[in-house]
Amino acid sequence: MRHRTRQPRQRNRFRNVRLSDSELALISAGAKAAGMTDAGFLAHAGLAAARDLTTTAARIAGDRELLAELFAARRHLGQVGNNLNQIAKILNSDGHAPQTDVVLDAVRRATERLQAATVRLLDQ
């Protein structure tokens, strides 16, 4: 049996990466399209991101900000939905709900906030 000779530029450092099934599928598809192995593709993509830290950091910060906004809008809609359910209960029992206009205005604002965050996400 012949020993395999090492190439002078071969990588000799090792890292483990945990991926979900969908993430692995995306990476495998990207690697296949580029004619690379999964490991080579990950190394190439990671090095490309590391070489442009300002853009990468800005993108990550923007993504985090966008996710925070989406979660806040979702939380706001949940709170408003609870208020709307309380108003519906009062109105169904022939009661009077003076705060209806305030809650409907909150629904409109929360919907606009969620719409704006969604547009930002789609524009990326």
Rank of each mutant, 00 (worst) to 15 (best):
R109T: 14
L47Q: 10
P8W: 05
S28E: 15
R15I: 11
R113S: 03
A73N: 03
R113D: 02
Q115K: 09
V17Y: 11
S28N: 14
G35P: 01
L122M: 11
A29R: 11
A29F: 05
H44L: 10
R15G: 04
D105S: 12
H3V: 10
V119L: 08
V17N: 07
L114S: 00
V107S: 05
S22M: 09
P98W: 06
R9C: 08
L84D: 06
A49W: 01
E112K: 05
S28D: 15
G62E: 04
R13N: 13
I87T: 00
E65G: 05
R4E: 13
L104S: 08
I60T: 13
I60A: 05
G40T: 15
A106P: 01
S93Y: 07
V119M: 04
R13H: 14
P98M: 09
V119A: 07
G95L: 09
D94A: 13
A33C: 03
R64V: 11
A106H: 10
A25P: 06
A88W: 07
D123I: 02
T100L: 12
R18I: 11
L42A: 08
Q124D: 02
N12S: 15
N83E: 15
Q115H: 12
D94W: 05
A45V: 13
A48Y: 03
R109H: 08
E65H: 06
E69V: 08
R4F: 07
Q124R: 06
A43H: 07
N82K: 10
N83W: 04
A97D: 07
G40N: 05
E65L: 05
A25D: 15
R64A: 11
L42K: 00
Q99I: 00
Q115M: 07
R120M: 02
A25I: 00
D52W: 03
T55R: 02
R18W: 06
R120H: 04
D21V: 00
R75A: 03
V107Q: 07
I27S: 04
R108L: 09
H44D: 14
G62K: 00
L66D: 01
G62C: 02
G81W: 04
A25E: 15
A106K: 12
N92V: 06
T54N: 13
R4G: 09
